[in-house]
Write a protein that binds this DNA or RNA. Sequence first.
DNA 1: CTGTTTTTGTCGGTTTCCCAACAAAAGGTG
DNA 2: CACCTTTTGTTGGGAAACCGACAAAAACAG
Lengths: 198, 198
Amino acid sequence: MSIKSPDDPRVRRTRKLLQQSLNALLAEKEWNDISVQDIAVRAEVNRATFYAHFEDKYALLSYSIQEQFRDALNRRSAHWVTFSPENVRLLILVAYEFLSAFVGHCVPGKAQNMEEQSAIFISLQTQFYDRVLIWLTSTARVEKKPEVTAMAVSWAIFGTVLQWTRSERRLDANTAADEILARVLPMLAPYLSEAGVR
Amino acid sequence: MSIKSPDDPRVRRTRKLLQQSLNALLAEKEWNDISVQDIAVRAEVNRATFYAHFEDKYALLSYSIQEQFRDALNRRSAHWVTFSPENVRLLILVAYEFLSAFVGHCVPGKAQNMEEQSAIFISLQTQFYDRVLIWLTSTARVEKKPEVTAMAVSWAIFGTVLQWTRSERRLDANTAADEILARVLPMLAPYLSEAGVR
DNA sequence: CTGTTTTTGTCGGTTTCCCAACAAAAGGTG
DNA sequence: CACCTTTTGTTGGGAAACCGACAAAAACAG
């Protein structure tokens, strides 16, 4: 059994319930102590229905992070379709805040939740990559391989933000965003030249 | 299409959503300005599904009040099955608090929400009646017509509580409960004689 | 009053969800 | 190790929710 239409109200409802259930469980248990069963019971959703939507709990976590980050973005700006330095900066800013809040929840000493963390990080980086790639391909001026640029840019943003949020001395989110933006913009220059050179 | 099993998670979910939707709408609109359509849209439930559960918006309101009152009761005591003066007193007490809170929401001058209020009152009185009747019939000693006693008792409780909550001078809930209980207990004497006479 | 719009109930057809059951894998415990 | 319990995926049948459409009633405007 597989789901076809993500616009069906029942589908949205089920996924939201599973998402909320996982968040609630993460607040009181370790990632490894949470079973698919737990999630389904807490969400009051049948276990078979869970598997109709997600392959396992990792897939749900990935989906949940994606949604949360998307919400965090939409709360800042309404028009993300347009590719502009301002929007790139906002992306970095929200990433910094998002990861700061998340790292704040984790106990540094515990190596228990490494598996969970890495799953989240992979999911987030993919999110960055997809977004940047969409920006690049939506531009009129096309590079030979926009995927490579998108990969480099997304990793530059994600990696730096991750490193800084995990370091002892926390930077202000706005200054951090400015710093990172300054390093990333040169990579994006070919795509932004319309307003610059033209 | 009619619903058969109230234990189905989907049924509970749908009803809860419709209930919450109605509550939200009542907080910002008059009862007469709320359509079935509004409720369904806000609840993100199909309009046809609404009619599968409730005949109209009055039926939903009635159901909602019943549920809220049941919750208010369960929050006080765990074992409502047993028929005892203490539980009768608790029933009165919760009724007083419940109606006080409800009347507080209503604007006295507005005659607009009379229709809504009467619907709620009818629903509540029925609730009292059902509960008292269950108590009486669960007793070993059986009167000829317990329905009549239940009717009289439930109306005595409901009517008095309603009158007092609407009056200017508010009584303390506990003393009010004691006052009413003292008048009601004689009616229930035949059913309580086990511990008294025996 | 007439015409327009909104709301109301209701109806098949389709999709999703629930449920019970199952075998297989994973996790303890002696 | 064997034994037992829990968890995992998967399946088929049935119940509930979605959707679009419809006619009829109600509310409304000119």
